[in-house]
């Protein structure tokens, strides 16, 4: 059953089309990934879904509530973790959660228990009375996820949840995020431009220049590439090449002294190929990645996050405030 429905959504800013006629649905209890380079329209879409922006045209609804006309109902049923932290650094972890509980009108009698629950869940109960400005990036992000869950939303939005975190913290955060749907009965809608992170999603939408290019499961997206790539090196590449082409009907190419070919079932292909050609020196199998999918569909690589000048300024101010604030 779809909990998020988006139909022909368009958003223009002064003639610039940020979101160009996109439609998709997200099923309840799944993790849905929104994948694309910076400026593709991911954050704009999230902002429309969480009622911070109104769409130029088209419809979006969450749990049956229209994002344009029933914004209060939509806001009640969603939790959001934005790209930039939205915690109050001059308050403690506990106070930030308390602030949130009041904003969402959590019952006074349940407040304490719920806050303690989420603090235990993210493993930060012992730090509850520390000021947020003393926390590391990963702790802040976890605290924000906890805060987003506090009012028990049906959908949790995560906009680039691992941006700016070190690899180990990123891995920890993912372990924590993938548990959310079962443990807390929530649908997760996330954006990322880290391809390997998108692998955990049940379904992925690829967006580029405001247009939706594909929506499917990670496996099915990868299948569109035609399968795995096998690399083989033999003492006589020429001979091996003609043999493989003749026997398996595969298209073989050569690069840097290695033969490579695309094969739908790489694992079972390898033994047969090895058996049929003589003197194999090395074999390796490369499974297609989402990056390959993206490359094929858009003709370009997803780029690393580049900081704009404004972000650099903000980052400087933030660290300044951390030190002197």
């Amino acid at each position: 059953m779809p909990i998020i429905k988006v139909e022909n959504l368009v958003k223009r800013f002064n003639g610039l089309t940020a979101v160009n006629d996109i439609s998709f649905e997200v099923d309840k209890g799944t993790i849905f990934g929104f994948l694309g380079p910076n400026g593709a329209g991911k954050t704009t879409t999230i902002n429309i879904l969480c009622t911070l922006l109104s769409p130029t045209s088209g419809n979006a609804s969450i749990a049956g509530h229209d994002c344009k006309t029933e914004s209060s109902d939509v806001r009640r049923s969603i939790g959001i973790v934005f790209q930039d932290t939205t915690l109050d650094k001059d308050l403690t972890a506990y106070e930030n959660l308390m602030f949130h509980s009041y904003l969402y009108n959590v019952k006074r009698s349940e407040m304490k228990e719920r806050i303690h629950d989420v603090l235990h869940f993210i493993g930060m109960y012992e730090r509850k009375n520390d000021l947020v400005k003393k926390f590391s990036g990963g702790m802040k992000r976890r605290l924000e996820v906890a805060r987003g869950m506090l009012h028990r939303p049906g959908v949790l939005f995560l906009d680039e949840p691992t941006l700016g975190l070190d690899p180990q913290t990123r891995a920890n955060l993912w372990e924590f995020i993938v548990e959310l749907p079962q443990k807390h009965n929530v649908t997760v809608f996330m954006t990322t431009h880290y391809m390997e992170e998108a692998e955990v999603c049940d379904r992925i939408a690829i967006i580029d220049n405001g247009r939706l290019i594909a929506v499917d499961t990670p496996d099915d997206l990868k299948k569109t590439l035609g399968g795995d790539v096998i690399y083989i090196k033999s003492s006589d590449n020429k001979k091996a090449r003609s043999e493989i082409e003749k026997m398996f009907g595969l298209e073989v190419s050569e690069k840097d002294g290695e033969l490579f070919m695309t094969c739908s079932m790489g694992d079972s292909c390898i033994p047969e190929i090895i058996r049929s050609i003589s003197d194999v020196q090395s074999v390796r199998l490369q499974r297609p990645t989402l990056n390959d999918v993206f490359l094929k569909m858009t003709g370009k690589d997803i780029r690393e996050e580049e900081m704009s000048e404004g972000d650099v300024f903000k980052e400087t101010i933030r660290s300044h405030r951390r030190r002197f604030g």
């Binding site: 209060s72 009640r76 959001i80 934005f82 939205t86 915690l87 009108n105 903000k314 933030r318």
Partner: peptide, 14 residues
């Protein structure tokens, strides 16, 4: 607004 806290308030059902 500049440092984000306002967003937390604006997406709340208030």
């Amino acid at each position: 607004k500049e440092f984000g806290m306002m967003k937390e308030i604006l997406v709340a059902p208030v």
